[in-house]
Design a protein around this nucleic acid. Structure first.
Lengths: 212, 212
DNA sequence: TAGATTGTTAATCGATTAACAATC
DNA sequence: TAGATTGTTAATCGATTAACAATC
């Protein structure tokens, strides 16, 4: 519905945070908010908030501010929450299990429709209401269910070959927790590399910054 | 050992990625590399790599390039890998379990020394070689072991109070997986908010970008 | 030495902040 | 209407890229 396609990554990365803060405001019964008030709560400048929102449209009202509920809905729409994409998860180890069980996909624009692992922990045949299938069935599953997104909770070594296979099966987006950097040049394949280890190391750096 | 304290976040966030790529080069028996060659592998510009590295010192050699092993060691030192910080983990659910078991803390500047959870899954008294303690013992544990970093794998609601308690116990850094934004103004408390949900939503945005 | 590639300064680009006219 | 706050343009700031002299 919105045609803007030149939105910069810094703006995109701030959207989910706006979404969270607006949800909290809504939950606390706050119905309207100014960019100034929101900026104080979020630790941003009011200017930045207005700039960010105006990338997508004029959601506010001069002299008044923004309607919390309406802005929340708008950002949800911008993020595609109302437009869920089917996703499969590969690698049902501890991390895969945590993601499958606790990530609220439905509130974030996705629907988890399949789980794959060749060696699931003994006695675990299903998870989050879904059967855990062997990767031998991956191709057939993709052919019939046509999921568009794949979550990789697999070891680094398995990643490159699997990514190629998944792209061939029609996967258009990767949420990648494997220690491997997906850098796929295909124009309509989107990758979000998570790299928890990198995050941990930046914390290490910053905790040691002054000392040395 | 390096006194630089005005390194910008973009640079800091690239360091672990350099570290990973250098590790792989090392593993593949490559002993020297030019900024140009590395830039092609990483999808950066050679200029940026040289700028980044020169924030910390002249690790290269004109006309020759960089010694892989030496540069790897240097970046490890910069990131504090050789200078481990004791860490405790709170919340041993699926995510906490995944982090405790699979995050290689020793290679990333930390040492996991304590686990806390008031309701661990039945029959699980230890994990990663550590006992799971009730939070009632948190204060005593911190007093005797003096951990400096805390990993939060707890529900959003529990976070604010726990953060305050932990800061009072001497915690100087947080690796926060809870759905709550820690924004602590204390000058010597460092926070790394992970927010996997935000990451997922940016993927949703980008997968829907062209369609709408 | 000649060739290559760094370290570093200067130029460009993009993102954030400030300012203010439009308007509710 | 007057006061407030947006939408938007202009100014500033910071990060990336380009260029090149230094030097191995």
């Amino acid at each position: 519905m919105i045609k803007e396609t030149n939105i910069s990554m810094p703006v995109i990365r701030r959207l989910p945070r706006y979404y969270r803060f607006l949800y909290d405001l809504k939950e606390n019964g706050i119905t309207r908010i100014s960019s100034r008030e929101l900026s104080q709560r979020m630790g941003l400048t009011a200017s930045q908030i207005r700039q960010d929102l105006n990338c997508f449209g004029g959601f506010g009202q001069q002299g008044y501010g923004y309607m919390v509920e309406q802005l929340y809905e708008e950002i949800g729409r911008i993020l595609g929450v109302d437009h869920p994409t089917d996703a499969i998860l590969l690698g049902v180890g501890n991390l895969g299990k945590a993601v499958a069980k606790h990530m609220r996909f439905d509130t974030r624009g996705f629907r988890l429709v399949g789980l794959f692992d060749d060696n699931p922990a003994l006695g675990e045949a299903t998870l989050a209401g879904l059967p855990i299938l062997p990767t031998a069935q991956l191709e057939a599953f993709c052919a019939s269910h046509k999921p568009q997104m794949a979550i990789l909770c697999i070891p680094k070594e398995a990643a490159p070959a699997l990514v190629q296979q998944l792209v061939d099966c029609g996967i258009k987006g990767f949420w990648n927790f494997s220690h491997y950097d997906i850098s796929f040049d295909h124009p309509d394949v989107v990758v979000e590399n998570v790299h928890m280890g990198d995050s941990l190391m930046t914390l290490s750096y910053r905790m040691n910054e002054d000392k040395e």
